[in-house]
Write a protein that binds this DNA or RNA. Sequence first.
RNA 1: GGAGCGUUGGUCAAGGGGUUAAGACACCUCCCUUUCACGGAGGAAUCACGGGUUCGAUUCCCGUACGCUCUACCA
Length: 504
Amino acid sequence: MKENIRVRFAPSPTGGLHLGGVRTALYNYLFAKQHGGSFVLRIEDTDQGRFVAGAEQYIADTLSWCGIEPDESPWKPGEFGPYRQSERKSMYADYAKKLVDEGYAYYAFDTPEELDNQRKTQPNFQYNQAHRNGLYNSLAMSGDEVKILLEKNTPFVIRIKMPEDENISFTDMIRGEVHFNSSQSDDKVLLKADGMPTYHLAVVVDDYLMKISHAFRGEEWLPSAPVHILLWKYLFGLENMPQWAHLPLILKPEGNGKLSKRAAEKLGFPIFSMNWTDPRSNEFTEGFRERGFLPEAFINMLAMLGWNDGTEQEIFSLPKLVEKFSIDRVHKAGAKFDFEKAKWFNHEWIKKTNIEILLPAIENIFQQKNIPIPHNEKSREIFELVKDRCTLLTDFIEQSIFFFEKPGNAGLESIRPKWNDQKNNFFTEIIRSYTLLPYWENEALENTFKEIAAANSIKPGELMLPFRVMLVGGKSGPGIFQIAEILGREETLERIQTSLKSLQ
RNA sequence: GGAGCGUUGGUCAAGGGGUUAAGACACCUCCCUUUCACGGAGGAAUCACGGGUUCGAUUCCCGUACGCUCUACCA
């Protein structure tokens, strides 16, 4: 075990941050913090052509929303910068050349078109030991030929020369021993024609230069691990290689396969942490945050997708996760994402979070919808009353809107069929009694209501629903006398009166 | 096609040679509430298949099936 724990998260900004990416970041962070180490954020923006403007900021914002603060990042450089791969460009070519000089890699002059042709004519074509001698590279030609081509500035890539039939194995922190045969992998491109490294070269060089001790990434990287292992062996020595952990994938809920934006869209749930507009297509995607998720619930839900602490506990705060997390309890198998369960986590967090803390987010939601609400004790009281019925932050609107806006007349239609003079008289009398009520308070309201009902020989049950519809406009919600109490005498009486008129 | 990885209810999962195979989400029933939620009680539902090893496999081993990932000058 290395002395200094340094865990890196190296997202590509080409597609923004999906659920899987945030979970990788989270696990990286948990592991680093738990061991008193550093969480290093490095941006893999090697592929300039597909670089998405604004993605970097988006990644920063996401992590910040989740409460995950990197110890080192492009915006908070440590001593191992720069932290943006595009700014590290000059560091890679020398290592690639060194590999060529030592016989571990070679120049390849084949154009992409030529290779495309090979793949068309040979279904399972691979640039590997079986084919490389018949291709246009420095292994298949004389040293003089190579020199001439290089002097003429012929475009080239540098490829790793995969050894023949060599056993490559390493210990994955989640999967244990994993074995590969070197003949299975093709000769991956290390340095592209534009001088930029591919991911394969870049991770290894960057992880070495940044003294990374632990590298966690998605399971999709497992098949290319042997290339990375070899590179470590050739360049820096296996003893300096970070410990690997390949995290299981997050799968889509229906059918099988990796969770994708398409799948999420089809089933109507977010896949991005926050709203995201793709600058290339202008396509807008709603995020978990705007959908009404609490960051605490978001990371809690993510953490539990592939890990648990072995007890029955499911609700964990970030500090608790740091305390309890253990990489060897992470699952090997992928987990299907379940939006219902995600909502359950949010519901639990809303219920346990103090209204004072929730208030800014709630007010924000109302503001987004252009519904003005007063910032006062009464609002707090209202939200406290409806809190337990809200699964998403956005539910606060639906659950409490009638406190802030008068309900329309539409709801009255549902009670009109059973409406009669007897009920009309009852409510007329209610208005009179409520006007005279010394204390406008829940229990007094209920008692009076029942007394008058009894005096008129009507079952209270037949009157409660009409009363509710008059005040709220719908058939559900908190206790109706509690609602009336908060609404206040004036507003309550006015709503009854308006309804009575409408029902004539 | 090849390689790697995986497989406990519909979903997330605990367990890991002998268990009535936890718990959560979702679903159903009942209670609470003169509403709807919340809450409470209960219910239905699972070890992919076939061989070993063993007194005994869901658990260990080997196959098979199925699924996923990768197989780009993308990450």
